[in-house]
Design a protein around this nucleic acid. Sequence first.
DNA 1: TATGAATGAGGCTTCATTCAT
DNA 2: AATGAATGAAGCCTCATTCAT
Lengths: 225, 225, 225, 225
Amino acid sequence: MQNNNASADRIREKKKLFLAREQRIIDAAVELFLEESIDRITVSKIALRAAIGKGTVYKHFLTKNEILIRIILDYERNITQSLTKGIKRAEEGDSGAAAKSYFEARLENPKLDRLIQQLEDRLLESGDVADQVEKLHKLRRSNENALSGLITKLIDRGVLEDVPAYFHYLACWALAQGAVELCFNKTWNDRTDTEQLMEFITNIGVTMGNRGQYHPDDPKSKKDK
Amino acid sequence: MQNNNASADRIREKKKLFLAREQRIIDAAVELFLEESIDRITVSKIALRAAIGKGTVYKHFLTKNEILIRIILDYERNITQSLTKGIKRAEEGDSGAAAKSYFEARLENPKLDRLIQQLEDRLLESGDVADQVEKLHKLRRSNENALSGLITKLIDRGVLEDVPAYFHYLACWALAQGAVELCFNKTWNDRTDTEQLMEFITNIGVTMGNRGQYHPDDPKSKKDK
Amino acid sequence: MQNNNASADRIREKKKLFLAREQRIIDAAVELFLEESIDRITVSKIALRAAIGKGTVYKHFLTKNEILIRIILDYERNITQSLTKGIKRAEEGDSGAAAKSYFEARLENPKLDRLIQQLEDRLLESGDVADQVEKLHKLRRSNENALSGLITKLIDRGVLEDVPAYFHYLACWALAQGAVELCFNKTWNDRTDTEQLMEFITNIGVTMGNRGQYHPDDPKSKKDK
Amino acid sequence: MQNNNASADRIREKKKLFLAREQRIIDAAVELFLEESIDRITVSKIALRAAIGKGTVYKHFLTKNEILIRIILDYERNITQSLTKGIKRAEEGDSGAAAKSYFEARLENPKLDRLIQQLEDRLLESGDVADQVEKLHKLRRSNENALSGLITKLIDRGVLEDVPAYFHYLACWALAQGAVELCFNKTWNDRTDTEQLMEFITNIGVTMGNRGQYHPDDPKSKKDK
DNA sequence: TATGAATGAGGCTTCATTCAT
DNA sequence: AATGAATGAAGCCTCATTCAT
């Protein structure tokens, strides 16, 4: 009995170590990706940074791409959490809270957010890890569902423009995506007041799609304002 | 005399052929990039598609990256043209025309626009062709200057929010950038009504930053609406 | 404890194997270089001859040139050993021993010696591996220093002509260099008595620079003999 | 008749231009080889420097190697001339004149002499242009013959050691070869008094092989001195 | 006749992945 | 179980030579 306990403990202990090491790999990879050009990060370098053998990496991840998708998923889960909180606050009355939370989460560490986008580009093009990618899409769609209800209510209450709910959500996503890109585009990123600019954009994100701004097929819409 | 003319003609003819072939290389490259993962397009494949020898590519471009930057510059010049026309119309009275032109140009062929962004990412990370990249940035900054005057006037006339002119421009850039990304992000691009969505976003782009939507440091700003 | 020992043993064993393989690469390269034109030896061929994968070569040497410099250094170290012994014998009384040892070492395998010279030419022109080349020069200069003392003594004893010590050393180097070249110059190397010729030259090397043969600025010097 | 003359003139004129251009190619090649690493000189660069089209080079030389062998032959012919004069003077009484002329010719422009050696290395290894190489060897052997008579006389007169005549010639060649190498070997060529060193070596070349310095198979020979 | 654009074989190097220890 | 040496496919680029104009 005691033996069983002891061995069970040992197994649990090992599992914990194993998971910790897995996290070390992920962390090492993210660190390196943030430091240097993505193309120049090799599995060797990741192993070195994680202070384990190259072969060991392959005990945790079947391919290099599995590391990438894992990084992306971790990040997306983080975004989801923030968004969930925002939705909750929005349902409690603060109509812009969801969008705000979303923007803040994505702009909190724009460099990382951009990295994720780039990893995603590489990954989707490569074609493998299709099942993992599907997971990512499911996660995002679940966010969408959570939002849809909220947005529909806001449309009903006349706060938001009456277009399909996901128009609002995706416009928001697009602006956030672009804002992040903006932060790191070499053409623009020598501005000194990035912070205020991001605030400006966040505000646009929060108010865009509000009623009174979009009047399809109505040539007089502009006069209405 | 006749001889001179004849030989001059021949030389001109040759130059034309040479340039035509250069364009064939570019076209072949773009085609392939649009068809398949960027990483998987090799100089060999480009040459094959352009129906020329691999070595010939290097008569036209010093390195593979020079092909990429050339594609990007060609595209950016195209955008610039559209924008210039839009600015002109805006100055003739249609205040939203510049933003509209810009969005339309970038969303006309979103797949290509997205390709350009991705090529740029790759290129900047690679580090070489720095001088060509500088050209690109100059082109973009010249666009910015052209816009600044217009935006300033619109701010003075009270149409746009009173923030630094480039806030408006960059917000616009960011939304366009994100919209393009949206079109091809695998998570979202199975929608059927992408066109209307893009119209929705374009409209946001045209109206965003208009007065009455952004009230920094004013907690009551939302009530004002 | 036993485990530790066992694993330490295994590690040592591995290191030995690794070094053995490195030597195999070197040997294969030298073999090939001696068999065929230097230009035609590729990394692929070396790997093939060493019976390893092409990529493995790069685990041992950063570039192809590193293989070359390594061959050169190995050879130069060998020469240094012979020379050191010769200097020792010279200091024990046999005044010509140093020069003799040097000539014998370089003429022992003239084909190899010539290969080394050619590799060096290629290497210096290529420009990289500058630091390794510096090592080579240091090695040679240390030989020079070892000789300088000896030569100075011989000058003091009136055995050698009173010119800067390195005149003697470098004249010796030059003759040896030329003798090697001679062995393999296609114009001359169809002689049948190369061995006696080399003996003749070695003797010149041993006696050249002896007093009574060089009288700079002294028009009567020839009469003195 | 006049027509014939005129056309003959034109043909002669053309031939002259053709030969002049051929020389331009040779000169351009030598210039470039002296300026930069041999490997880095391409046919393109040579044509550019000679201010003609690349294709035109191939009207004059069947392959790149033919340019090399031509440079070598031109140089060797030059050496031959100097040597011939030296032999003449030697036969008029100045016994060391031949060796002296030879050394002076080869050390007059050591950089060029070394280039020739290097080109020869490249060429012989490459295997083609065998017939041209044969020409080179013939030229050298004819020099040898011219010398042999002289040397035999000097041996008979007791000036030179009684060994096969070509021993003397080849020892001389070897020392000259090595001296040139010495001038440009990176390990040694930071000396400041190269000129005196070369004078020292030339003197060795002139006196080496003189009677009284070489006593094969005679253990007492050293005491004789 | 002179040209130079076109060619493509072939070189060096990188790196994800495997597997014996 | 962890390791890291070994692998070889695949990429980019060079350049001697050809040939149509």
